[in-house]
Design a protein around this nucleic acid. Sequence first.
DNA 1: CGCTAAGCTAGAATCAGCTTTCATTACCTA
DNA 2: TAGGTAATGAAAGCTGATTCTAGCTTAGCG
Lengths: 239, 239
Amino acid sequence: MQSSRAQTGVPPTGNVAGVDRPGGNDSVPKRSTPKVSAPPLPETLSAAQLARRERIIEAGLSLLRSHDHTQIQMKDVAGEAGVALGTVYRYFQSKDHLFAEVLAHWASQLVTNVERRPLRGSTNAERLTDVLHRSMRAFQSWPQLARVVLSLETSEDPFTREIFARNMARNTKVYVESLQGLPDEVAKDVVSVATSVFDLQLRQWVMGSQSIADVYDRIARAVWVVLEFSERLPATSVA
Amino acid sequence: MQSSRAQTGVPPTGNVAGVDRPGGNDSVPKRSTPKVSAPPLPETLSAAQLARRERIIEAGLSLLRSHDHTQIQMKDVAGEAGVALGTVYRYFQSKDHLFAEVLAHWASQLVTNVERRPLRGSTNAERLTDVLHRSMRAFQSWPQLARVVLSLETSEDPFTREIFARNMARNTKVYVESLQGLPDEVAKDVVSVATSVFDLQLRQWVMGSQSIADVYDRIARAVWVVLEFSERLPATSVA
DNA sequence: CGCTAAGCTAGAATCAGCTTTCATTACCTA
DNA sequence: TAGGTAATGAAAGCTGATTCTAGCTTAGCG
């Protein structure tokens, strides 16, 4: 189930073992059963249940149209989906998990959408910029979702992490595909940098410390700086 | 006081006006005075008060040695500092605010430290990589602080944002200074990208989805890719 | 020196929301 | 149609930040 966290040099989390509380508080470990039963995998559900699950996700997505996810309460989602609160928790481990699924749901629609119409531009830089700008535009038309992303980026919930990782992998794939004629290694590096820039710009925009115009500009600029160099490394020079 | 948030195209926060709750819940606004009085500026405090304030910050920093900030409760900090809980709130608007100051405190020590010993490397790429690696190493020896950073990056608290912005400006300055002979515009772009990469790598390491070795590697690689290009733009070509 | 407001302290009380529980009831399959 | 699983509704748990209260202390001042 859990995927990552199996690397080298993982930082000491410091919260795994409930050793001792800071203050004079000498409380007990308190490791009550973290969760009796994990939510069933979607694959194992009946049609009716899948539908119900879907309904819950769409309810969440729908509520995000007009409300920040921090304002949306689980009971609201349940209500909107026409389902009992407990039912929501049958399908989703936590609020984070639910919204991670919501995000994935939305993103998967987007990707097919992006794939539908071909990328603009004749150079790698132009194409990569185009994809990044498209992604940003998507968030721009639904800022609440951007907030969800930022919030989930630091979620500890394993389900959330899993979904999130899958999501990021998908994005990376799309980005990589916008690059042609580059050695795999180089393409990977370029995409890694592009992703970083996108991430930070998204955050700064959402947090209100950067105008959307600057965001687009910085993304374009970053791509330019990075790619124009990389394309000179291999023999094949563009333009 | 507040600095940013005055740009163009700020995204609709959606949580400013307590219009209507999603569900059928027709609760009242409940906007009791959000905060009667802001914490006094450090400059206006007596020596004894400054000392007390300092003591609180150091208590927070000290507790971070062995505990994640989410595990540290305000009362713990108060206890560690030998101060009443209410006093902590006299000096700091919120938990976020407190930890932002803790972070700033730590960072300011670091910076002077970095400035003390000259940067290694004869090229811009080497020097920038060196600074970034040093910064990362600092976090590596104190992962709890990295977590604080990630958490504060999305804090809404205006005090926190302010402190954070100042911090980031300081970092940027150090980074820029590692670059020599580059047009201002280019240097800015390079640093912007470098910062993004650093940020994402820090997050991925802290969240356990990237080994620390890979983190250093990716940073170096990113700098290489970016800088080796930029240094070819102006007349002066290195190596 | 005596007074007074502001600063402190120790605790207790609020509050908000996610999560969990539980007694029922509805549904599906063998 | 019995047995078991899933869903419902309502009502607690629970955790911690934040706020409030009442009684001391202390520094500055006339």
